[in-house]
Each structure stands twice: as structure tokens, then as C-alpha cells.
Design a protein around this nucleic acid. Structure first.
Lengths: 346, 346
DNA sequence: GTGAAAGCGCTAACAA
DNA sequence: TTGTTAGCGCTTTCAC
């Protein structure tokens, strides 16, 4: 009784021997590189199929590329990320690149650093950072080690590209929609950003800014009312409780994210009020939650899939040319009006 | 003006030179291997810190391990997976292993194969397959190439370990709860499994089976009523429409998953009926959706975090000893009664 | 306990 | 167009 042979992996040497060519030739075929005749390609391809050969990424990476793209996403629970991810994987589907996700721990710089370091250590060819919370200098350090595209964070840099949604425009869409329905007392619940250094780069700040600007543009500067909590259900709940306690209660609430709107909905229901009868409500992100029939939340749809495919495109460009001029792509969101917004009570 | 030096990565050779020892010594320290005196360890550690050295995983993998664990998850949108993932990462947090997620494309064997192959090609030390849809023989092929733990799929194998939730028990909890409230006409919406070969291994089949057995055990065999659609919101919607059209409408519905319950809720609302007034509703998975106040869906909580940490534990054991006896861990779910279930109308 | 030297599987210079 | 050869950064014998 022999123990089952530890089945050595098929290597490039086996393929070369089987095809009666050099390992260089096989390597060239693998990389579609210049310098191999059609006949040779055919021979090598046959040998590869015969033997079921698959190149070992780690070994390739030691000299060339690993054909691996890392995507860091801070919070796997955020229902908006899958869209972006689909955009990335779809764009990469026809290439030799494989995407792996690094779980980055919600709002946790340490965790983010750990996972990005791990990606670099694994020789990944490029990485996409989705809504990173790390300091700008850290991100630039990452970007100088490996081609990088940053998604969902505003601001320019000489070493990485960015893809963002136009959050100012999105906020403006919401305010415009509510004002058109006849609302004047439109309040906003924002995510409080503590770090002054990066505040301007975060989408939440842009949304709050867009809200203020839109209110002003519509002559509603007097009615500006912002509550600072956080982009969580709890944050929405607390924010709504504050707003409902106002002497002059707002007639409409613009929550900075759908998850915040969920908390608002809970507080409003609890207070015995109805949406949109007593108060109109709009969110942001157009999640499955918002689209869900019985809830039917008015929301802003970010072009998630486009964000992802643009990020992938820019990353491939940057992998091909690390010195290329940085690009900032800004996509336009759209408003999806649903049943939580209506004209205010007369 | 010199162009910025292309900053070569710090290697083990640099560390060895800086610490005035051999590269072998450094390697030993990195791996906590035998054969290095405390003084030498200290010297090397200092050099590593001084130089900011980080080992290149790809290079390590060529001889030894890559310290990388791959987790394949078929559908990133499934709100149950994050729990499992947290369980895995928490368990691995204190080790040198890093987790990467491979997006596996919903119910798509091709995509699953692509991502698992990619993991093997990257020399990952072990992989966790979450609710894989691939054939058993394919899974065994994977498991014979790399230490593997399968999560959320029943059935034994000689080459991999499994961690599952006891779906039969979970279904039984729901039926028991509804029967205790006084329901007799309890219907079930299941996910139709087409492939006869793997049907018995899938959680959905186990839930349907558990439903039937529980009904029988309670003397309600006559009332067994199963609608086959799919574990999607649309599936729940269609299933509910069928059930609502029955001459003797069920007084309670056990949806095989929370997402299915969402569809049921939509159909029931649309029909002008109320939950739980006209019809009681229970789901499975205890997602954020179910917990959300205004919805407050009775559901079954799978011990997601425990599932994950058990999977990680078994995987580490298997990495340490590839020949170990396979283990099947089966965890017990709990019922979370909420406001969608109540006694039937008199 | 320590280090020299031989690879791991692949790619990139360079010769032929 | 083709093949030879020297590494990439690390781990692993195996001498000492």
C-alpha cells in the first residue's frame, strides 16, 4: 500500500518538455509576448491543455506580474459596494486579472493599513481603495508602492486616480425635488467627520455642503438645519428624534444615506407620525432597502456599476503606465423619487 | 534633477546585512523556527524594524507558505455572509494569516471554478468555500489540492471538513413556534433545487425537509403545503401570490429565507392584507432586514460568527495536518420571535 | 546554534 | 524566431 503520490504540480518545464520547446517559448505564449511563431504557439497551447498546466501566480510575481488586483472595501455590509464591485469584475472579466477583496474593517485605519500592506506584500499588480478612511499621506504611500485608484473620496493627487460620485449634485437633486414639492423646512442629517484634515475629501461632507448650497440657491438659507450624527441606523434614529423635538418641526428630511433614512423611519413611526403624510423623507445610495416595495424610499442613485468599471479601466491604464497623468472621474447621480416624498400638509 | 530612485523593496538580504547575520537566521526569526538564540532574535527584530522590512508573500510561497487564506463567497449581497466572515477574520486576527475574499458569482459554477482555481494558483495556504454550488467531485478536487473547509453545505467527505447550521432544527423551531400560536395551515416557500445529485446537501432542501418532518410530528401532515420558487425577493412574491390564491388560504407562511419573506410581505401588502393580522410570516437568517423596527420579522438566527470561527479553526488544523480525520461541525440555530407572527384570527 | 548553498517556478536579458 | 542563462526573495537542507 503506497501512500498516494503527493502529485507534484505541473510546471512550465513539464510543458516545455512535452511540447519539445524551451521554457522561454512557453513563457512567451503564456504572456502573449512577442517572439513565438504561430506553429509554436499551437504546439505549446496543446501541451498546456494536455497536461492541464496552470501558471503559479506567486512564481510569476517574483519576476513579473501576479495578475492579481486587490480591492479594499471598508465595510462589507454596505449594500452600495456590490454594485461597484460588479463594475470592476465585469470590466476585468475578459482579462487575465483576478480580483480579490480585502476586508478592511469599518472606519478602522489600523485594519485598512493591515489589508493594504498585505496586498502589497502579495505582489498585487494594482489596488482599488473604496472609500478609504486612511490619511492622505498613507494613501499616497500606498500609491507609490503599487498602482492605485481611489473610489468614493474626493481630492486630487499626483500619484493616484480617483473615481467619485458628484455628491454635491446629488444633494442638490434631493433639495430641488423637495422644494419643488413645496417644502421649505428641509433638514439634513449628516455624518460627523472629526478629522479636519480629510473632511473635505469625504462624500458625507460633500453632501452636507451640497445641501447648504442648494438651500441657499433656492432662497431657503434661513431654513438650513443640519443635525450631525453618523451614517448608521442609530445615527438616523437619534437625528430624527432631535428634529422631531424642534419647535418648528421640519416638513422634510434629507438623510445622507439610506441606512440613516431607516433610522429616521423608525423614529418617525415611533412618534406616531406618518411618512410622507407628516414628514417627507429622502435617502442616498438607492439600496435594495430603498427599492423595497413596502418602504419605497426616495433616494439618490449613484452609478455604482459605472464607478466600478471606470476604476478598473483607470487601474489597467495605470498598470500599463505608472507615470501617467492622474485622472479624476466624477459621475453624475440621479434621483429616484418614490413614495416617501410628497407635498407638505397645507 | 534626478528622477526619484525607483525605491527597491527591502529584502531579507538587507536585513541580514544590517543585523550582521545570515539570511537563514532572518528566515528563522520570521517563521519563529527552531535554531536561533534569543540574542540573535533580538538583533534581527531590531534590523527588521529599522529597515521597515516586510516579507514578500509571493517569494515565501515559492518554497513555503503564503500566509494567505482564501474565502470564496458566492453572493456578496447575501447579508448573512458578513457574520461568517467576521467569525473567520476574528479567529485569524492574531495569526500571521491574511484573509482575501474571492467573489464567486451567484449560483454560477463557472465563476466558482475560476475563483477557486485562482486561489490555488496564488498558492493560498487554505480556502473556505461558503455555500458552494459546484459539484461534489469538483469540491473534492479542490480539497485535494489545498486544505479546504466547506461552510453551509451538508454531507461528508474524506478530504474536507464542514461547518453547517442545523437547518432541519431551524425549520422545526419555526413550525413549532407557529403551531404553538395556534396555526395549523402553515405553508412553506422553498428554493427549488434542480440538480438531483446535490440536492440533499443544500440548506434549502434541509429546511424544506425539516418543515415537512415538523409538520408530521405535530400531526399536521394533512396541512403540508410547499411552494417551490427561489430564495429571492421575486421568488417570495410569486410564492405568496400562489398561496394567497388558494381556496383555503394558509394562516401562516414560513419563508425559507428573509429575502423571500420580503417578497411575501410585498405580495401580502399588495393584496390589501395585513401581517400578522391576516397572515403570520417567518423568515430565516435573521438579517438586518428582519431586525429593522418597522418590519420586525420573526426569523431564525444562524450562529454566523460561530460558523466562521469554527471554519477558521478547522482550516488551521487542516493546514497543520493535511491527513487529519475530517470533522463535521453542526451548530444550532435559535428562533427570534418578532412582530410578524401572532395567533391566527379566531 | 549558525550559515553556505541549492533550489521553488517563472520571466527577462541576451546569444545564437 | 528560438534557446540559454541568470536571477526574483525566500525557505530548506545540510554541513559545521
Amino acid at each position: 500500500m503506497e501512500p498516494p503520490a503527493p502529485q507534484r504540480r505541473v510546471t512550465i518545464v513539464d510543458v516545455a518538455r512535452h511540447a519539445q520547446v524551451s521554457t522561454t517559448a512557453v513563457s512567451k505564449v503564456l504572456r502573449n509576448a512577442y517572439g513565438a511563431s504561430p506553429e509554436m504557439r499551437a504546439k505549446v497551447r496543446r501541451a498546456i491543455d494536455d497536461l492541464g498546466y496552470r501558471p503559479l501566480a506567486a512564481a510569476r510575481g517574483l519576476r513579473g506580474q501576479t495578475y492579481t488586483i486587490g480591492v479594499m472595501l471598508p465595510d462589507i455590509r454596505n449594500p452600495f459596494f456590490p454594485e461597484i464591485l460588479d463594475g470592476i469584475t465585469d470590466h476585468l472579466a475578459d482579462t487575465d486579472y483576478q480580483v480579490f477583496l480585502g476586508p478592511g474593517g469599518c472606519n478602522n485605519e489600523k485594519a485598512e493599513a493591515r489589508v493594504t500592506d498585505a496586498m502589497i506584500d502579495r505582489g498585487m499588480d494594482g489596488i482599488v481603495l473604496i472609500a478609504p478612511v486612511s490619511s492622505r499621506s498613507r494613501i499616497e504611500r500606498i500609491a507609490s508602492a503599487v498602482p492605485t485608484v481611489v473610489v468614493g473620496r474626493h481630492g486630487h493627487s499626483a500619484v493616484y486616480d480617483t473615481v467619485t460620485d458628484d455628491d454635491v449634485a446629488g444633494a442638490s437633486l434631493v433639495v430641488g425635488h423637495l422644494a419643488a414639492l413645496g417644502h421649505r423646512r428641509i433638514a439634513h442629517i449628516e455624518h460627523r467627520e472629526t478629522d479636519a484634515a480629510r473632511i473635505a475629501e469625504m462624500p458625507n461632507a460633500q453632501r452636507a455642503d451640497g445641501y447648504r448650497r442648494a438651500m441657499q440657491a433656492l432662497g431657503l438659507a434661513e431654513e438650513i438645519d443640519v443635525v450631525s450624527t453618523s451614517y448608521t441606523q442609530q445615527g438616523g434614529y437619534e437625528g430624527a428624534r432631535q428634529l422631531l423635538a424642534r419647535p418648528r418641526r421640519p416638513t422634510a428630511v434629507f438623510a445622507g444615506a439610506d441606512i440613516v433614512a431607516m433610522g429616521v423611519l423608525e423614529a418617525v413611526t415611533e412618534a406616531g407620525l406618518s411618512v410622507p403624510g407628516d414628514i417627507s423623507l429622502a435617502g442616498y445610495d438607492n439600496t435594495a432597502f430603498a427599492a423595497f416595495g413596502p418602504i419605497s424610499l426616495t433616494s439618490v442613485d449613484q452609478a455604482g456599476h459605472d464607478i466600478g468599471s471606470n476604476a478598473a479601466r483607470l487601474l489597467l491604464e495605470r498598470i500599463a503606465d505608472r507615470q501617467k497623468t492622474p485622472v479624476q472621474v466624477k459621475l453624475s447621480p440621479t434621483l429616484v423619487p418614490r413614495r416617501t416624498t410628497a407635498a407638505p400638509r397645507a
